[in-house]
């Protein structure tokens, strides 16, 4: 049975304000998709909704995961159940957890994801095996060993955070991964390394949704499909050439071709500005 993540007619609101207005997306394990679109169009919101962020309310639509010979109603699952079912989000802006060492955090995470049936309080994977594996992965990612002893994202530079997200991806080896602007904050060499690493981790084994404004991350992860989000909807889907076009020429053609979504976008960014002025955004 194929393993598929299916998003149908997804509507998501934040604080009662509609952000996503009917998103459809089918991601098969082994495929790579690019998701592009102007700032504020709803890309990160889609990632949060897929993981079940409590602040992002799904008002309509479904998310289903076909995996391990069963069909899961993703919206009925807790975020950690989604993670253990094999869904991963690399955060655009990862949270820091002061006082919790990266290695301890990841050992716990890795144990749970690899053994989804594990009950709270049961043994973690053996320290020695874990350390060895973590060290190897960190070497591949050219990360300093000291990284593992630092507190989760605490005081990390933008680039360090993104590399830490890739490290977690490498350790957790999900079936489906959403990478939300994992290239931002990285210099050119680091993006190339990230692109290679993602390809090595994923290979033909992962369904990957890459949210990006650039083409570098796609270098080693050539997308079969490129989706364009505007005003909370996916308005156009094409092949790899669409990603190139958008990266080079921007979104003017898209806005002209989909005036209704463009109007939604303008309205959303207006209220965003108003919110920012009120100091609530």
């Amino acid at each position: 049975m194929a393993e598929i993540l299916t998003i149908k007619d997804l509507h998501v609101s934040v604080d009662g304000k509609p952000i996503l207005k009917g998103v459809n997306l089918v991601l098969r394990r082994g495929e790579t998709h690019a998701l592009m679109g102007p700032n504020g169009s709803g890309k990160s919101t889609l990632g949060y909704a897929i993981m079940g962020h409590p602040g992002y309310e799904v008002t309509q639509g479904t998310i289903e995961l076909e995996a391990d010979g069963a069909t899961h109603d993703v919206l009925a699952m807790e975020p950690d159940e989604r993670a253990r079912a094999g869904v991963f989000l690399a955060f655009q802006r990862p949270m820091s957890i002061p006082g919790v060492k990266m290695a301890d955090f990841l050992r716990h995470a890795t144990t749970n994801v690899r053994n989804p049936q594990r009950k709270e309080g049961e043994d973690l994977i053996p320290m020695r095996d874990f350390r060895k594996e973590l060290r190897a992965k960190m070497e591949q990612l050219k990360m300093d060993a000291e990284f593992a002893r630092r507190y989760v994202n605490e005081g990390f530079s933008g680039g360090e955070m993104k590399r830490a997200e890739i490290l977690q991806l490498a350790m957790l080896r999900p079936k489906f991964a959403i990478l939300d602007e994992t290239d931002s904050g990285l210099d050119v060499d680091a993006v190339r390394l990230a692109s290679q690493s993602i390809a090595e981790i994923g290979g033909a084994d992962m369904g990957i949704l890459i949210i990006t404004h650039h083409d570098k991350l796609l270098e080693h992860n050539r997308p079969q499909y490129t989706h364009v989000m505007l005003g909370g909807r996916i308005v156009e889907t094409g092949g790899p050439e669409l990603a190139e076009e958008l990266h080079q020429r921007g979104y003017d053609r898209i806005r002209a071709a989909y005036p209704e979504a463009a109007a939604e976008e303008a309205a959303m960014s207006k209220s965003e500005n108003a919110a920012a002025q009120l100091g609530v955004a």
């Binding site: 079940g52 975020p79 955060f91 955090f105 995470a109």
Partner: peptide, 12 residues
Amino acid sequence: FYAQCRGLTRNE
């Protein structure tokens, strides 16, 4: 939420 996204239960 971040920790849950990495497979930790809410309690953990």
